[in-house]
């Protein structure tokens, strides 16, 4: 029974290796970010499967922290898309400048 969960976890690890290829290959920074985020999601999966496989529910907390902190890293990553690291790539930058004059 436990082995089923561990087998699934192993499967996710293999898929992580696949995602790593994209982080290595790029070619854009966005590719690398997305790949790191994908792996983050994989990590959440592995943590949950380990919690089930090893019968340790406290491991779910780790999955929770993974999920929260992945969003955090994603935002920091996205910020690197604007030159001063302070903007929002979604927003039209000139419009943003008008709203909030840079000091």
């Amino acid at each position: 029974m436990d082995d089923v969960f561990l087998l699934a976890a192993l499967g996710i690890l293999v898929s992580i290796a696949g995602a790593l290829f994209r982080a290595w290959r790029g070619p854009t920074r966005a590719d690398r970010m997305m790949s790191a985020q994908l792996i983050g999601t994989g990590g959440v999966g592995v943590a949950i499967l380990l919690a089930a496989g090893r019968d340790a529910p406290a491991m779910l907390d780790v999955a929770l922290v993974f999920a929260l902190l992945a969003a955090f890293a994603a935002l920091a990553f996205v910020k690197t898309a604007t030159p001063d690291g302070a903007g929002d790539p979604e927003a039209d930058d000139t419009e943003a400048q008008d709203r909030e004059p840079a000091p």
Binding site: L20, A23, A36, G40, G43, M59, V62
Partner: peptide, 23 residues
Amino acid sequence: ASLAFFIVYGLLIALAWLSLNAI
């Protein structure tokens, strides 16, 4: 790319600690 790998690295190390039951 190194930073992206490093973030992945931290995640994998955390999984290693899970596997060692050091939650």
